[in-house]
Design a protein around this nucleic acid. Sequence first.
DNA 1: AAGAACATCAACCGCTCCAAA
DNA 2: CTTTGGAGCGGTTGATGTTCT
Length: 320
Amino acid sequence: MGRSPSFVKGVKKGPWTIEEDQKLVAYIEQNGHGSWRALPLKAGLQRCGKSCRLRWTNYLRPDIKRGKFSLQEEQTIIQLHALLGNRWSTIATHLPKRTDNEIKNYWNTHLKKRLTKMGIDPVTHRSRTAGNPNLSHMTQWETARLEAEARLVHEPRRVSNFYQRIHHGSLPISNKPLLVSSLSLPQPLHFDVLKACQGISSYRLSDLPELAQFVPIVNPVENVEPLSFHDMTMEDLTSNVKISEVLFNGLESVKDEGNQNMLQVTNMVYEDGYMTDALTNCLGNDAVGENHNGGFEEETNYWSNILNKLGNNSSFSSVF
DNA sequence: AAGAACATCAACCGCTCCAAA
DNA sequence: CTTTGGAGCGGTTGATGTTCT
């Protein structure tokens, strides 16, 4: 049913010649590919339609980028693979101008090996070395981030400087000026807030490993000397820590309720609009206040306030 | 210098999906 | 509803290039 015969008399196989390529390109440029099955005859090629389609989609198409994969592309592949597995065509839709075949080859010949070398199982994307919860935690976060970003490409909205802020001025993920959408907040908001705060916690802890000792459940770094963290008191810190644990545990407990939930809610991490709306809905205006424009201490206080509010918020607590 | 071993990637194969008949 | 056939997907192969011994 629907299967092409594996052998057809008079049909050429193997590498394509320049002449064949030229014929195929010329025909498609003039007529479009139409029915692939009928194409070879019309184009004067001794190939099966399937071979023509493959040659075109994987090699001859004008909108194909060839050559070395960038670091960003590599990261995207790894993270999407963690989320999607070997669904190369889906992964390819997130990497403009790359084909599924190319990505698949690159994964099999480069990335899989590299992950294995790093002690990461290329199938599960988890550390092989006696459980590193932070790794899967970060993978999870990065995965969700990518998925959200990928969807933003198709669903333009205002992108904020939020991501830049939490990354201390590193390059934005997207340089595209996105539009403000009408309010269609993802639901449930609890997950939004949860995810957003988790992102913040992740960032801080990975950026300042010294802080990790206060949050052993998130980042179990051993033998780290205590650190006085700017002007924050220990009380502030432990207060955050306590809530971070709640956030993390909460996230762990809901993560299996379906990727849809997880993925649906992550846009707001990049978008002040979503973030503010989500927080406002959960906590009320006074808790969220004005947007802030950076400065690590300011940021710290901002999140400290919000986390404290979250900790006392009954609707949020009910998530758990 | 030469052969072996390994890496790369274009292309093929067999399968599923899905729309049309 | 079943059958058919085109399109597309993912796994795999094998020719070619590169590195190692």
